[in-house]
Amino acid sequence: MTSTENTARVAIVTGGSRGIGRETAERLASDGFAVVINYAGNKVAADEAVTAITGKGGQAIAVRGDVADEGDMTAVFDAARNTYGGVDVVVHAAGTMYLAPVVDIDLDALDRMHRTNIRGTFVVDQLAAKQVRDGGAIINFSTSVVGLAIPSYAAYAATKGAVEAMTLILARELRGRGITVNAVAPGPTATALFLDGKDEETISRMAAQPPLERLGKPEDIADVVSFLAGPAHWINGQVIRANGGII
């Protein structure tokens, strides 16, 4: 398919091979987007995500790349343009998380998390600001933990606080182009990233926190992204706490 033959809106989803990213990629494809799935290293999972979309008649390709490497991500944006003609929506769902009290945090782990979550967001958002077509959307990912102040989450929440600051400022920097910039801040959501290393008691306790009395599901978050990528064009420069009502 050449770019001149494609009429769909085009979305790049970083971290699109699993979890919330994959659910988001599939949801946007069902909304009619041609989707470029960016993945860090798990080619098998990325190819499975592409197959899930194309098997239902959608359009998708997978492109490997480290979100913190500007060369890698330039190649992802180039693939979107060369395959589908441009970029309308960028969903930056890739991220990493290490949990430990401040007194115990491994500083090498902290640096790795800063590289992916902070530098990675700058790299992706910078390219998005240059290449997203007027009228499009940029959607970053934060976390509800920024406001909940849960012990052991300080380092992770600090990186996501930076993401929120970038989001609010970039929305104002793109004045005049009709591009919205927002962040989605999930609460506890049943993904591998969240469940890894937690015992059943901890998971049950966190699932009981929202008034809706359950963990979030990846599709709950994908619904919010779909809204921001499509009809919600009057929402701009906001952080949406998608957490079932946890205060």
Rank of each mutant, 00 (worst) to 15 (best):
T4A: 15
R9W: 00
R9E: 14
A11P: 04
I12C: 06
V13F: 08
V13Q: 07
T14L: 03
T14K: 05
G15W: 07
G15N: 06
G15S: 08
R18Q: 13
G19K: 05
G21F: 01
G21S: 09
R22N: 10
T24G: 11
T24D: 11
A25W: 02
R27C: 07
L28R: 06
A29K: 01
A29C: 06
S30Q: 13
S30T: 11
S30C: 00
G32Y: 02
F33R: 06
V36G: 06
N38E: 07
N38P: 05
N42Q: 09
V44Y: 03
A45M: 12
V50I: 07
I53S: 08
G55C: 05
G57H: 04
G58K: 05
G58W: 04
G58R: 03
A62H: 09
A62R: 05
V63M: 07
V67I: 14
A68P: 06
D69G: 04
E70P: 01
E70V: 12
E70A: 14
E70F: 03
G71E: 13
G71Q: 13
M73A: 02
V76N: 09
F77N: 10
D78V: 00
D78A: 13
A79D: 03
R81M: 10
T83M: 01
T83V: 07
V87E: 09
V89Q: 03
V90Q: 11
V91Q: 10
H92S: 15
A100I: 01
A100W: 01
P101V: 02
V102R: 00
I105Y: 09
D106H: 09
D106I: 03
D108W: 02
L110E: 09
D111T: 14
D111E: 15
R112C: 02
R112I: 00
M113S: 02
R115Y: 01
N117W: 04
R119H: 08
R119A: 05
F122L: 15
A129C: 08
R133G: 13
D134I: 02
G135Y: 03
I138R: 09
I139W: 04
T143W: 02
T143M: 02
L148I: 00
L148R: 14
I150T: 13
A154W: 08
A154L: 07
T159S: 13
K160E: 05
G161L: 04
A162T: 11
A165T: 14
M166S: 10
M166W: 07
M166P: 00
M166C: 09
T167P: 06
L170W: 02
A171T: 01
R172H: 13
E173W: 12
E173C: 08
L174D: 10
R177D: 11
I179H: 05
T180F: 00
N182W: 07
A183Q: 05
A185M: 04
T189V: 10
D196Y: 03
E200F: 03
E200Q: 15
E201T: 14
E201H: 12
T202L: 12
T202Q: 14
I203T: 08
S204Y: 00
R205E: 15
A207P: 08
Q209M: 15
Q209A: 13
P210I: 10
P211S: 08
P211G: 09
R214H: 11
L215N: 11
V224I: 15
L228R: 08
A229Q: 10
A229I: 06
H233I: 03
H233P: 00
W234R: 13
I235G: 09
V239E: 08
V239D: 08
V239P: 06
A242I: 04
A242F: 10
N243A: 10
I247K: 15
